[in-house]
Amino acid sequence: MAEWIYEDGIGEARAALIEDGVIVAAEIEADDDGIAAGTIAEGRLVKITVPGRRGLVRLDGGEEVQIEPLPRGVTEGGRLVVEIRRAALPEPGRAKLALARQASPEAGIAQGPTLIERLHASGDAVRRLMAHEADALEAAGWSELLEEARTGEVAFPGGGLRLSLTPAMTLIDVDGWLDPAALSIAGAEAAARMIVRHGIGGSIGIDLPTAGSKAARQAAAEAVDTIVPQPFERTAVNGFGFLQIVRRRLRASLPERLQGDPLGSAARALLRRAERTPGSGMRTISSHPGVIGRIADRPDWQAELARRIGAPIALRPDARLAISGGHVDAENP
């Protein structure tokens, strides 16, 4: 039976849907994600960026969101109530603003559901994982999942996937050594599992090998239909092996999180390791200077870690370490 394992970590909450010992879906909710999808809030239209189409709303809480389409009759400076359709997305250099639309007249002010609330509403079993318990997430391949999201590379029998994030869509390239028809089907299955596993939404392109027969192209498309849950839309696999999928996009995928904010993601992963490091006495966290800087900038993270482990912590920047290469040492192992 599938079961969600949920962990309320430092700096982020994380969860994985585990079936037969394998992670089939996962989500992360960081403490700096900003306003959640589904939130209904009041604000002011501060700027029209595309006349008749798009504008900028500053919510009463101070966060700015993009609104599209522009509501009729609201001019710059006007008050309105909006519904958040999609949370902000981390991107290298800058975050993409949350996307909003005008709320229905009868809508009341409300916060969007948190990760744990969404899990309970899913109907699947949910179990909270505590730091003193055996690490069920790691046993199912949590670190491997994060590495997939960080690099965009996933192997499957007979080939491999390479994911690329672009402003327009998420692209998944399929390559391998099977014959083209077999590789097209196997690659479509692997790409579909990756989409579900990493929570990828929006416009997605899968570049399969050119399969000579219409039957192979149809089988590849049907493999996607079997694995990716509805609702979604897709094209047929064209003669060049390209398939496009459009899924609802409410929040960032795991690759968007890890590639859009590599330092923050590595810092949170290292805090998780620190919480689970055995021993007693001071814990020394060693990592790339950028990662240590992110932890140093969050005294609340440090205080919460010290509270949970019952010991002080020390931060040690080491320029020789890669961003993902940090480690934690206990004073008394």
Rank of each mutant, 00 (worst) to 15 (best):
R44G: 00
T235H: 10
G201K: 00
A252E: 08
N238A: 07
V24A: 06
I295W: 04
A223Y: 03
A110M: 13
L70G: 07
A95I: 00
D297S: 15
E222K: 12
A155S: 15
T39K: 01
G281E: 11
L254Q: 01
E64L: 05
D31H: 07
G202P: 08
G325H: 13
L165H: 08
N238F: 08
P278Q: 07
T210P: 04
L80N: 09
A215K: 15
S265R: 00
G152K: 02
L270G: 02
D297T: 04
D173T: 13
L250P: 00
R79E: 13
G290I: 06
E7V: 13
G123C: 10
I204F: 04
P167F: 06
L17I: 00
D124N: 11
A149W: 01
E304W: 02
L165V: 10
L129M: 14
G325F: 09
V291D: 07
H288R: 05
R79G: 02
E275H: 05
V224L: 02
G264Y: 06
I109P: 03
A88V: 02
V196N: 09
A223L: 05
R307G: 09
A37P: 00
L263I: 10
N332W: 11
G239V: 08
G21K: 10
R294I: 13
F156I: 12
L208N: 06
P209T: 07
A216L: 06
R316S: 14
